[in-house]
């Protein structure tokens, strides 16, 4: 069920580059793990009530905001590339091939 094409698709979706050499062993590993967890299909879960229905809102109130900018320097210090107090990313809109490549 897992083949190189599946691994390539997952790698693209998750933005995790997988080297050519690793693809085959990744296929084998994923196959083995999925084979193991497929044991679950033998379990009768017809009695289970859909757990999604039991969820409730657990967000805290968005209040008590701190003074803007007091953590900026510290947070920016962790960013690999910055400019004038901003975090720098490559151009997305208008760059040839950029939008296609993230689909």
């Amino acid at each position: 069920m897992i083949d190189r094409e599946t691994v390539e698709k997952l790698a693209k979706l998750t933005r995790v580059e997988i080297s050519e050499e690793e693809k085959d062993s990744m296929v084998a590993d994923l196959e083995a793990i999925l084979g193991y967890v497929s044991e679950l299909s033998s379990s009768d879960t017809s009695s289970v009530v859909d757990t999604l229905d039991t969820h409730r809102n657990i967000f805290r109130e968005d209040e008590g905001a701190e003074e803007p900018g007091i953590h900026t320097a510290k947070i920016l210090a962790d960013a690999p590339r910055t400019e004038d107090g901003y975090i720098l990313v490559k151009q997305v809109i208008g760059e040839k091939g950029a939008v296609d490549s993230i689909r």
């Binding site: 691994v7 997952l10 790698a11 693209k12 998750t14 933005r15 995790v16 580059e17 997988i18 080297s19 690793e22 990744m26 590993d29 994923l30 793990i33 999925l34 990313v89 490559k90 151009q91 997305v92 760059e95 091939g97 950029a98 490549s101 993230i102």
Partner: peptide, 25 residues
């Protein structure tokens, strides 16, 4: 070469094998 590659190379090189495996799974 572009933002997509920035992501996938940073993550492909930054994460070890077991982490990559679990993300894909």
């Amino acid at each position: 070469a572009n933002l997509f590659e920035d992501y996938s190379k940073s993550r492909g090189i930054g994460f070890g094998r077991e982490v990559r495996r679990r993300i894909l799974l």
